[in-house]
Simulated scan of single mutants.
Amino acid sequence: MTQKAAKTLSLMAALVALALLAGCAATTTAIRYQDLKVETQMSDTVFLDPVPPEQRTVYVQVRNTSDQPSFNIQYEVSAAIAAKGYQVVYDPRQAHFWLMANILSVGQTDKSALELASGAGFGGAIAGAAAGALIARSGSELGGAAIGGIAAGAAEVIAGSMVKVNWFAVITDVEISEASNEGISEETQSNLRQGSSTMVRQSSARSTDRKRFRTRIASSARQVNLTFPEAEPLLRQGLINSISGMF
């Protein structure tokens, strides 16, 4: 056998080994994440005091500032709250409770970005998939085959193209305010950046007759090769249940 033929056979053997290793990693990932996992988590618990029937009135406003304007749940949230015995009114002056929600982000993410957005709480930073580990890297979550050196990197790329654990999430900030007979003082402080080296600090104070509660809701879905059309109805229902469940 010539030296050239030996090199060719060695290369072919290496490629076959890489393919087998990649297939093993992909199979492990597919088995480990074959079941769809849907979660809805709140950054802070909101407790509303029980009120008499005449005060069970709610004004609902759900906005969507994400790049998915079709993800609109105001009607469903209003219906879910009404099903709990509350009257949804269209004049905020007639409502004992105000429910204000803003859908900040809808779409694909990864585990680290989701944890960052959820942990930041109401008004905190939101990171897209690019801000955490890339989905092609951490999202693929290869299944732990013992591969070393260059072979490991090559096998991960191959397996990652075959099987991915896709994450989709909806991040929503929610504020509920309740009418109060007692006067409440509010103080607001803002830090406004001007240029790269100047910061302007503003503060204001006012009296109000409403108590405010704030939280952030992170709804997520995860599965091997999951698509957004598959995840969307589950994310939608999880968010509706979480928001209406505070009443």
Results as ranks from 00 to 15, higher is better:
95 A>C: 11
97 F>G: 00
97 F>Y: 15
98 W>P: 03
98 W>N: 10
99 L>V: 01
101 A>K: 02
104 L>F: 01
109 T>Q: 05
112 S>E: 10
118 S>G: 13
119 G>H: 11
120 A>M: 05
120 A>C: 00
120 A>H: 03
121 G>W: 04
127 A>H: 03
127 A>C: 05
129 A>E: 15
131 A>L: 03
134 L>T: 11
140 S>D: 13
141 E>Q: 15
142 L>Q: 06
145 A>M: 07
146 A>N: 06
147 I>E: 07
148 G>E: 07
148 G>V: 07
148 G>L: 09
150 I>V: 13
153 G>E: 14
155 A>I: 07
155 A>H: 06
158 I>W: 09
159 A>L: 04
162 M>N: 10
162 M>I: 10
163 V>N: 08
163 V>P: 01
164 K>E: 07
167 W>E: 06
167 W>L: 11
169 A>Y: 00
174 V>A: 07
174 V>G: 01
175 E>W: 02
178 E>F: 00
180 S>H: 05
180 S>C: 11
181 N>E: 06
182 E>F: 04
182 E>M: 07
185 S>R: 12
185 S>I: 13
186 E>F: 11
187 E>L: 13
187 E>V: 15
188 T>R: 14
188 T>Q: 11
189 Q>P: 02
189 Q>E: 14
190 S>N: 12
190 S>I: 09
191 N>M: 11
191 N>A: 14
192 L>H: 10
197 S>T: 12
197 S>R: 06
199 M>E: 09
200 V>S: 10
201 R>V: 14
202 Q>C: 10
203 S>L: 08
204 S>V: 01
207 S>V: 14
209 D>T: 05
210 R>Y: 03
210 R>G: 05
211 K>I: 02
